[in-house]
Nucleic acid binder design. Structure first.
Length: 190
DNA sequence: TGCCTGATGTTCT
DNA sequence: GAACATCAGGCAC
């Protein structure tokens, strides 16, 4: 049996971002489970000017250079958290930003964390972190362990995946490392 | 429907 | 001291 860490260690940033589409997060809160399906991702790598790891390993980006299949959580714009799944071998600053997820189970648990429902619940990187109560304390969390586990689903077919340029960045804007599930309403517009 | 802006704090220069 | 992998509310059309 292959561990998540071994699998994501062996994938390049865009391969990891594609592989994550269709996989699920299982978040345990107060003994109850919420499940969400990943529908939009962006790949980042240290050779990439838009990546936090571009300027080398710092206290903030330390976990991006650590073992794969761990969670990199960062705080931005003074009020939002976003989360990434670390990929590549130890010492490589690579990861996949989770931009949007689709609730599968335990939706009311997610709604309790956000004062909203419907599409608005998880259709953005900071929104899904709030819905799943992902905060700074979860930085460096191993995704094979509760209370937040990554569950692999079969890889999606290529005709289900749309590739495009990334959103919300000002450097390396032409790199086509954003991937999303075709025709999914939770994918953010642009 | 779509643009503009304020909120707010961490990180790096 | 400025930039920032964002969101939500307000206002104009």
């Amino acid at each position: 049996m292959t561990s998540l860490t071994q699998l994501f260690e062996s994938l390049s940033p865009p391969e990891a971002a594609r592989r994550l589409l269709g996989c699920e997060f299982v978040r345990t809160i107060d003994g109850r489970e919420a499940r969400v399906r990943i529908v939009e991702t962006e790949a980042y790598h240290q050779s990439d000017a838009a990546s936090h790891s571009y300027n080398g390993r710092t206290q903030r980006t330390d976990v991006m250079f650590g073992p794969a299949a761990h969670l990199y959580v960062y705080f931005t714009y003074g009020m939002h958290y976003c989360c990434n799944v670390v990929s590549g071998p130890v010492g490589t600053g690579a990861g996949t930003l989770i931009r949007a997820v689709e609730p599968v189970e335990g939706t009311e648990l997610l709604q309790r964390n956000r004062d909203r429902s419907g599409i608005d619940l998880t259709n953005g990187p900071a929104k899904l972190c709030q819905a799943m109560a992902i905060r700074r304390e979860m930085n460096g969390h191993d995704l094979e362990q509760a209370p937040l586990r990554l569950v692999l689903n079969p890889a999606l077919e290529n005709d289900q995946i749309v590739e495009s340029t990334r959103v919300g960045i000002s450097k390396a804007v032409d790199v086509p490392w954003r991937f999303y599930v075709k025709d999914n309403p939770y994918v953010s517009k642009s």
